[in-house]
Amino acid sequence: MNRLYSRSPDVLWRNIGSSVLLRPVDRTDLMILDGSATLLWTLLAHPITFEDLVARMIAHYGVDSVLVSGPVAQALSDLERADLVKMDDVGAGPP
């Protein structure tokens, strides 16, 4: 079973400089992502596993996986709580 993360389809958003401005459709509050969270948002344009996310972040920043895994997990959790990210569990499928 793979867990795939992607942007929630219920979010309105715009790039603003190196940040991203977001507004879930059914909420009135606005949120801003910046720094590495902006890259995370870019990578979430298409469904992606946690492992691939971490690998892409490591490749971009050139740092050790130990330094990336924790913050990415925390960021995904925060984004999910804010209704900005959705998760889909995808089975391995028939052999």
Partner: peptide, 19 residues
């Protein structure tokens, strides 16, 4: 950037209304 930020906040509000 500040002025653009204000303009974009308004755009997202309008898009929510549009939907």
């Amino acid at each position: 950037s500040e002025e653009h930020f204000i303009a974009l906040c308004h755009c997202l509000e309008l898009e929510s209304a549009l939907l």
